Simulated scan of single mutants.
Amino acid sequence: MFLALVRRDLSLIARSPAIWMPVMFFVLVAALFPFAIGPDARLLTRIAPGVVWVAALLAALLPVETLLAPDMDDGTIDQLMVRGIALEIVCAARICAHWLGFSLPLLAALPVAGVLLGVEPAVGWQLALALLAGTPALASLAVMAAALTASLRGGGALAGLIILPLALPVLIFGVGADAPGALRLLMAASLVALAIGPFAAAAALRPD
């Protein structure tokens, strides 16, 4: 059932006209930032990991209003509950599908962003590994925020306020992934977020 839900969610993401929005946003941030910083290549290279991670976080937030609210509005969540499917499984599948839907395209676009930001190949590989380890946490936080704001009109702005403070450890460990032990702490943060995410999102969706 979990795999069936993941396949369903991925098919919905693939049919969405906004499927390329996170990648386009990610690349546009990488393209525009050098113009804002100026010709200082050393400064740009030094702050490039932070730019990449902030862009990845905001890219994860872009589809937050469509992660759960449409299924709440059309009764899909209620139908799954009537069939005896636990909300935790539904939310876990949505986290997995959201991660695959936004993180893998971001990783594919990372070389382009790296060239625009002047990132060395060795640093680019470290960034890719850090994103692979940390984006599951961003996906989990995005689904939790989507569940908390699913019944609110214009909940995307509120979702950002919910996620940003919770994502700080992921951003800190992700930007400093080249430091000893930082990558392990990043993976631990992702595991904690993945362990808590389905239950927190299901609790927010469950009717009183």
Score class of each variant (00 low, 15 high):
134 G>K: 02
72 M>D: 13
36 A>C: 02
49 P>T: 01
125 W>H: 06
81 M>L: 12
94 R>W: 04
75 G>D: 07
109 A>W: 06
54 V>G: 00
63 P>E: 10
40 D>H: 12
76 T>L: 13
110 L>N: 05
129 L>P: 00
124 G>M: 15
116 L>K: 02
116 L>E: 05
90 V>F: 13
46 R>E: 14
42 R>E: 15
136 P>Y: 07
51 V>E: 02
136 P>H: 10
125 W>N: 05
78 D>T: 11
62 L>W: 09
39 P>K: 07
135 T>R: 12
133 A>N: 04
73 D>P: 00
98 H>V: 09
113 A>S: 15
66 T>C: 00
84 G>W: 08
81 M>F: 02
105 P>W: 11
121 P>E: 07
61 L>I: 11
83 R>E: 14
51 V>T: 10
113 A>L: 05
91 C>H: 03
77 I>T: 14
135 T>L: 13
94 R>I: 05
124 G>E: 11
68 L>V: 14
74 D>Q: 03
138 L>G: 06
54 V>F: 14
77 I>R: 05
120 E>Y: 03
42 R>H: 05
50 G>K: 05
75 G>P: 09
134 G>L: 05
131 L>M: 15
54 V>N: 05
83 R>G: 06
134 G>F: 03
125 W>Y: 07
91 C>Q: 09
110 L>A: 08
88 E>M: 00
104 L>Q: 00
65 E>L: 02
83 R>H: 12
47 I>K: 06
43 L>Y: 10
127 L>V: 11
131 L>A: 09
52 V>P: 03
89 I>S: 13
139 A>M: 09
121 P>W: 03
75 G>H: 11
102 F>P: 00
89 I>Y: 05
100 L>Q: 04
60 A>F: 15
62 L>S: 04
53 W>M: 12
135 T>E: 13
85 I>R: 10
83 R>F: 10
117 L>H: 01
120 E>H: 13
55 A>S: 15
52 V>W: 02
50 G>D: 08
